[in-house]
């Protein structure tokens, strides 16, 4: 099995090789080639136990551009509401001939559990598990940063990245910190004290409670979505106060370096963590991230499925 459950599954060289493959795929698909025959006859199942638009559509587009077949499963309106478990759902789909699962699940560690359980033989890609990890998002973010601040570079040293928002509950932040550190970037996480996780010292990154302090020094500002359900949990007083302290509004946008890029994994709460002016500014690469997402996921699918069949490898 060639899974992608966590950024920790990847060595530095493997991560770079995924980014390089994606760069070639981007050049290839930018021209007349819209679809490659590479994964013809393979079946990818999007197994989504949690709502998602862009991740699921992005994986679907990536798989289809490589000529794989795609089965979409979402927990809503399925037998999960009748009490069917992850195990039975996955095994049922595998019996239909699935070669790879893209799994999104609200429980942290769900992808790893599925991979280690031995319930299925298909490859597994983690598309977000609880507050744990979202490795393909980190890969597409690094791909985007590399295009703007380090074309062809295998190490990001000297690139200053700020990750701003709900660090404690964000799988995007966690995967990005792991990958950016692996690539050698200089990472600072910024949030109100309540949203900085305990033991942040062990992450090996700098942290700050003040967004304005080093604002002009960052090359990349990555804004995280404020999960509205957290507002009721009293992590911060209210949306307006959060926006004043940690939102990327117009005044902060103007104080950024001219070469700095503004990123957001989406979906955005305009006016909360990011103002409309910032989201739509020339420095924003948010839509580029979406486009890069498809390309990077093609590279990840190719990494898992470009290789021997499960059956011939002694599986099913």
């Amino acid at each position: 099995m060639k899974n992608l459950l966590s950024i920790n599954d990847l060595s530095h060289d493997e991560a770079i090789s995924i980014l390089d493959t994606a760069a070639e795929l981007q050049k290839l698909t930018a021209g007349t080639v819209k679809k490659l025959p590479t994964l013809r006859g393979r079946t990818v199942a999007n197994l989504f136990f949690e709502d998602s638009t862009r991740t699921r559509l992005s994986f679907e587009a990536a798989a289809k551009r490589l000529s794989a077949d795609v089965i979409n499963f979402s927990a809503k309106g399925s037998s999960v509401s009748k009490g069917e478990s992850l195990k039975d759902t996955a095994q049922t789909l595998e019996a239909m001939g699935v070669d790879l699962f893209v799994l999104r699940h609200p429980a942290s560690g769900a992808a790893t559990s599925l991979a280690e359980s031995g319930w299925v033989h298909a490859h597994i890609i983690n598309a977000g598990d609880g507050t744990h990890e979202h490795p393909t998002q980190a890969l597409l973010d690094s791909f985007t940063i590399r295009k703007h601040h380090g074309i062809g570079r295998n190490d990001f040293s000297g690139v200053k990245v700020a990750i701003v928002g709900d660090i404690a509950h964000s799988r995007v932040a966690r995967s990005n910190v792991l990958l950016l550190k692996k690539l050698g970037a200089d990472v600072t996480v910024i949030a109100p004290p309540t949203l900085i996780p305990h033991g942040i010292e062990s992450w090996g990154v700098q942290h700050s409670y003040d967004f304005d302090e080093d604002l002009a020094s960052f090359d990349v500002v990555m804004m995280l979505r404020v999960q509205l359900e957290r507002m009721n949990d009293a992590y911060f007083p209210n949306g307006r106060e959060y926006a004043r302290g940690y939102g990327l509004d117009e005044s902060r946008l103007h104080r950024l370096k001219k070469s700095a890029i503004v990123m957001h994994p989406g979906p955005m709460n305009r006016g909360l963590e990011i103002s409309s002016a910032s989201a739509d500014s020339a420095q924003s690469v948010i839509l580029e991230q979406v486009a890069n997402g498809v390309i990077v996921r093609m590279a990840v699918l190719y990494r898992s499925l470009g290789g021997p069949d499960i059956a011939s490898a002694g599986g099913l």
Binding site: E24, K27, L28, P308
Partner: peptide, 21 residues
């Protein structure tokens, strides 16, 4: 001309890195 993604032995070998076309 890179042919990696068009090979018919993709399933028989480990994935190869792409090279520029």
């Amino acid at each position: 001309l890179d042919i990696t993604m068009h090979r018919d032995d993709i399933r028989l070998r480990p994935p190869r890195a792409l090279v520029p076309t």
